[in-house]
C-alpha cells in the first residue's frame, strides 16, 4: 500500500522555479559562465516534481532563506539521473 504524503508546504522545501531564456542570458552574462559550470540538480529530484516539463540543461532558480542575507537566489542546472 502506497500512501501519498504532502511535501509541498514543508519548511525544508524551497521554492524552485524554471528560468526563462531571457533571465538565463542575463544570469550567464552577469557571472560570465556557461550553464555547465553551475551546481547540478537531478531531474528526478523531488523538489522538481511540481514543475512542468523539466529537461536536462534547464536552469532552476531556487529561493533560499539565508541567515546572512535574508533572501538569496541560487541556481542549479538540471542533469539526467
Amino acid at each position: 500500500m502506497k500512501k501519498q504524503i504532502q511535501i509541498q508546504d514543508h519548511v525544508l522545501l524551497l521554492k524552485h522555479k524554471k528560468l526563462d531564456d531571457k533571465a538565463l542570458e542575463g544570469l550567464l552574462n552577469k557571472y560570465n559562465i556557461s550553464p555547465k559550470q553551475l551546481p547540478k540538480v537531478y531531474k528526478k529530484d523531488p523538489a522538481l516534481r511540481e514543475i512542468e516539463d523539466v529537461k536536462a540543461g534547464d536552469i532552476i532558480e531556487i529561493e533560499r532563506d539565508s541567515p546572512t542575507a535574508n533572501k538569496t537566489k541560487f541556481y542549479r542546472v538540471v542533469v539526467d539521473g
Partner: peptide, 25 residues
C-alpha cells in the same frame, strides 16, 4: 503536522525533499 516534521537522517531528507532540502538539513 507534515509542514514541520523533520529527521536527522540527511539521506532520508534527500530522498524525500531533494538536494536543496538536504543542504539546509
Amino acid at each position: 503536522d507534515t509542514r514541520r516534521t523533520v529527521t536527522n537522517d540527511i539521506h532520508e531528507i534527500y530522498s524525500v525533499f531533494g538536494v536543496e532540502a538536504a543542504r539546509q538539513s
